[in-house]
Design a protein around this nucleic acid. Structure first.
Lengths: 330, 330
DNA sequence: TTGAAAGCGCTAACAG
DNA sequence: CTGTTAGCGCTTTCAA
């Protein structure tokens, strides 16, 4: 194991003081051209890299950003992580990804770890049922809540989606096509997203003159299996002819149940997903869905992270869009 | 901005030496129960977290693993990152993701950054045309090459896929169904994966008694657009009735071209993808594909990363599987 | 059982 | 223009 190249080792090597090396390497003008050139040449030759640990210890920012996601397989999260990682790279930031599986405990552990490495910011999709963001660990880091928002204790920025209009439109369209038994599957009301989407759905029903049938509503901790199981129930036991999904994971789970319906039955049913993965356009002639502007969310997130001005509780909201690729008439 | 809690601040707080605090917090037995309890209580109360920077500077390992991927939207890379991130979390490791877009320059920058933070290991899908892995930066880090392998200068472990049999089987099946104009799109031969898959394809043709038609072969730097464009050419200009893909991104791109074919034409053509994203089973009654055992790759990768014993140039290979979900007969 | 000193790599603040 | 010192947070080594 070759020893690490440091400014001191270079200095010894050249018979000068390590401060001169430091200055040369950080473009301090107070170094003679001759020595500077010699230093830079030697540093390049030996493959010197500045120790981030030493910088961090001196109090410089670490340029590390933490990203807490339920998973990274769901195409929405994947796309978000993709553009955030790309833009982070362009800005010289490291992106550390921790997956929470929507488990508050995993979330807390990840936050503690990020605190250890002195991440400058944490971007997180808050898990349902987690602590309020008062944790001592978070004091030192900028926090950006994504998609969902927790009851706030501390100032924490949020980048959210306003999907009310899109959801109302989707319900209106389903009603227009003759659907009377429209099921809804969404997150429980511990999260802002759960409350808001459910309210939008109910508003849509009201606008269409349809009653709210509690038997057709399913809210719970959102997950793939939860979406799949409830969709199965709604389509079979509850006799729903249409389903609207209120979450990314839920949507993919519910889609599974939808695709498992006998072909004849499926052609009579309507499915409105949440999020717009590339393949939704290819399935069954095209699935209708609530599309979320993922790139804009990611860019705004980076803007918040890199914003030097600490407007800590800034809150940004981007509109979703109802993508109608055709829905069965009843 | 509240000042950071350190062992010194706790020590001052309690009127003792910071060494005693250090010992108590690292379970050194040489601390009286009374002081130990007081220290632990105070530390918990104040939300003390050990500085990773200080540990790193002392020479302790950083527990940071770097992951370099072309992108993270492709479901194969996403799944790999997902299980690697999950298992890393379980082992107390940080996963830093850098996206390269298969650009060697981005790759080099990412590696330099990871070197700055003293990552203990780098897991990378080598970009086509990049440097040999002799870079001085890599000296200090364990390197694991994923999927593809570069001409080796230095010892670097590899976790690879053996897809020869699966590809040969796929070609055999296409031939059996009457296809005579089978196109192939794959990575160019600068990478091991490009060479091997092309060879397997040609071996498959030979086994089926079909000639190699150079006009039906397309190899280049692999990407989504490359796959889409070449697939379009093969299906139209070259009159291919079937296409076999030799790469994840290529497969999704080629699928785009395939789905763009007029419905009548498409039903006469056969598509064999590479990788098995969840939605391939839902498209067109199910797409056939070469399935790669992504979870096993990820677990092996973690094993290599956490292996204390430096068998540096270890090379692991996992078999792929031809998933036949039905292919058009001609 | 406790404490003091030294050093990991780096730079701000002072000498020369 | 160049060098010395000190200190960021932590643990190892030696001393009390």
């Amino acid at each position: 194991m070759a020893k690490r190249i440091t400014i001191k080792s270079i200095a010894r090597d050249l018979g000068i003081s390590h401060m001169t090396v430091s200055r040369a390497l950080s473009n301090n003008p107070n170094v003679s051209k001759a020595t500077r050139d010699a230093i830079l040449a030697r540093a390049r030759e030996l493959g010197y890299v500045k120790s981030a640990a030493a910088s961090a210890m001196r109090g410089d920012t670490t340029r590390i950003v933490g990203l807490l996601l339920p998973n990274i397989v769901n195409e929405f999260y994947a796309r978000f992580a993709n553009t955030l990682a790309t833009t982070c790279g362009q800005n010289g930031l490291h992106l550390i990804i921790h997956l929470t599986n929507d488990d508050p405990q995993a979330e807390n552990i990840a936050i503690a770890r990020l605190c250890e490495v002195q991440a400058m910011a944490v971007v997180m999709v808050p898990s349902p049922g987690g602590d309020e963001l008062g944790s001592a660990h978070l004091r030192a880091m900028k926090v950006v809540q994504l998609i969902r928002q927790r009851p706030q204790v501390r100032q924490a920025a949020a980048v959210l989606v306003n999907d009310r209009d899109a959801i109302v439109q989707a319900v209106a369209r389903l009603a227009q096509l003759g659907h009377r038994s429209i099921g809804y599957i969404g997150a429980d009301t511990g999260l802002s997203s759960g409350r808001d989407r459910l309210a939008a759905f109910q508003q849509g029903l009201a606008a269409a003159g349809l009653p709210v049938n509690p038997g057709l509503l399913r809210t719970d901790a959102p997950s793939f299996t939860m979406g799949r199981d409830y969709a199965g129930q709604l389509f079979t036991a509850e006799g729903a002819t249409a389903i609207l999904c209120g979450g990314f994971e839920i949507s993919n789970g519910a889609l599974n149940a939808f695709m498992d319906l006998p072909r004849a039955r499926r052609s009579q049913c309507a499915f409105v997903g949440y999020g717009d993965p590339s393949f939704y356009g290819w399935i069954d002639g095209g699935l209708s869905t609530i599309r979320v502007p993922v790139d804009r969310l990611a860019h705004q997130t980076l803007a918040v992270v890199t914003d030097p001005d600490p407007v800590d509780d800034a809150c940004f909201s981007f509109g979703a869009e109802f993508v109608d690729r055709g829905l069965s008439r009843i």
